[in-house]
Design a protein around this nucleic acid. Structure first.
Lengths: 204, 204
DNA sequence: GTCTATAGCCTGATAGAC
DNA sequence: GTCTATCAGGCTATAGAC
C-alpha cells in the first residue's frame, strides 16, 4: 500500500520555493519594484497558484523578513561575555563578513528596508534589536572599563562593524565593478581584522 | 515698460521645485515605489503640469542622479597629492561624514540605486567613478610606499570610508532608533578620526 | 492544487480647453 | 503654462472550471 506523497510535504516544498524566489526578487527590486508574477515565475508557479499558498504579496514579504532576522542577529547574540574580548570582537567581524559573502541577498533585503525608513520593520528594530544592542553595548563597555580593549563609543563600534561588513553585500555591484578581476572577499578579512586590531588593542 | 517675469525664470523655479520634491520622494521610496503624483503634490503642481517640465518620470530621476554625482565625488577629487597624507585622509573622512549629515537624502538615493544593482547607473560607475578610484588608489599606494601611512589595501580603505560615513545617512532610522536621544553625529566624528588615525599612523 | 479568465484598482502619460 | 478629463497598460487579487 504505497501512500501518495503527503500534501503537507508538497505544501512545504512549494512554500520554500516561493520564499526562495521572493528573496531573490525582493532583494534586487525592493517591495514595490517586485511583482507577484516575477516571484511566481521564478518559483515555477502560476500567479494564482502562488496566491493559494500566501494570501498576499505583503504576507510573503513579512514572512521572509521575520525569518531573516533571527539568523541575522545570531552572530551578535553569540558575543560571549566570558571569551577573550578582542578575539570575540574579531570573530564577530569575521562571521558578519562571511554572512555578507554567503547571504548577500538577505543583506540587501534588509538594507532596502532600512534605507527606505523601515516602514515594515520599525517595531522589530525598536524592540528586539534595541534590547540586544543595549545588552551587548553594556558588555563592550565593561570590557573597556576593565582595560581589555581600548575605550571608545560602544554603539558606534557596533555600527561600524555592521556597516563595513554589510557593505560588501549591499554595494556588491559597485565593489566588484571597481575591483575588476580581484575578488573583494580575498583581502577584506585581513583588512577588517587589521583595522579592528589596531583600533581596539589596548595601548595605555 | 515693465517686462513680464521671464518665462525662463518661472521654468527654472518650477524645475528646481520638482527636483527638490523628487529627491525627497525618490530617496525614501526608490524609483518604483515613487509615483509621479507624489512628486507633483510635494512640488505643489498637478501631475500633467509636472510632465510639462519633464518628459517622463525616468527623466526626472536621471537628471537628479547626474546632478548628484558631481557633488558626491567632489571630496574624493579633492584628495591632494601634495598635502600631508594622514591629514588628507582624515579630512576626507570628515567631509564625507558631514555630507551624510547635511545631505542624507542624496546618500539614500544613491544607496537605493546601488543596492538594487545600479540598473540606471552602471555606466557611470564603470567609467567616471572607476577612473577616479584608480587615480586615488595609486595616490594612496604611493603614500604607503613612502611610509607616510601604514601599508594596507587602498581600495578597501576607500570602501571602508564610504561605508562608515554613508551608514549614518543610509541607515539613519536604525541608528537613531538605537541611539535614543543621543545625536549620532555628536560622537561619530571622534570615533571615525580615532579609527583611521590608529589604522594609518605609521608604526615600524 | 492548479489552471484560465477577469475584476478592479492604480499609474504614467496625453488630449484639449482655457 | 496650467488645468480637467481620460486613455492605455500593468498590477494585485479573486472567481470558477477542472
Amino acid at each position: 500500500m504505497t501512500k501518495a506523497p503527503s500534501p503537507t510535504r508538497i505544501q512545504k516544498k512549494n512554500r520554500a520555493a516561493i520564499l526562495e524566489a521572493a528573496l531573490e526578487v525582493f532583494s534586487t527590486h525592493g517591495f514595490r519594484g517586485t511583482t507577484v508574477d516575477q516571484i511566481a515565475t521564478e518559483a515555477g508557479l502560476s500567479k494564482p497558484n502562488l496566491l493559494y499558498y500566501f494570501p498576499s504579496k505583503e504576507a510573503i514579504f513579512n514572512e521572509l523578513m521575520s525569518g531573516l532576522l533571527d539568523t541575522w542577529l545570531d552572530p551578535l547574540r553569540s558575543l560571549d561575555p566570558d571569551g577573550d574580548p578582542l578575539q570575540e570582537i574579531l570573530s564577530y567581524v569575521e562571521r558578519k563578513l562571511q554572512m555578507s559573502r554567503d547571504f548577500p541577498r538577505e543583506s540587501r533585503l534588509y538594507a532596502n528596508e532600512i534605507v527606505q525608513g523601515a516602514p515594515r520593520m520599525l517595531d522589530t528594530i525598536s524592540n528586539d534589536l534595541k534590547s540586544l544592542v543595549e545588552e551587548k553595548s553594556a558588555l563592550l563597555d565593561s570590557w573597556m572599563a576593565a582595560g581589555k580593549i581600548n575605550r571608545t563609543h560602544p554603539k558606534h563600534l557596533l555600527f561600524s562593524i555592521w556597516s563595513l561588513t554589510q557593505h560588501y553585500a549591499d554595494f556588491d555591484v559597485q565593489v566588484r565593478t571597481l575591483m575588476g578581476d580581484e575578488d573583494p572577499f580575498d583581502a577584506a578579512p585581513d583588512y577588517l581584522e587589521t583595522l579592528y586590531r589596531r583600533m581596539l588593542t589596548p595601548r595605555n
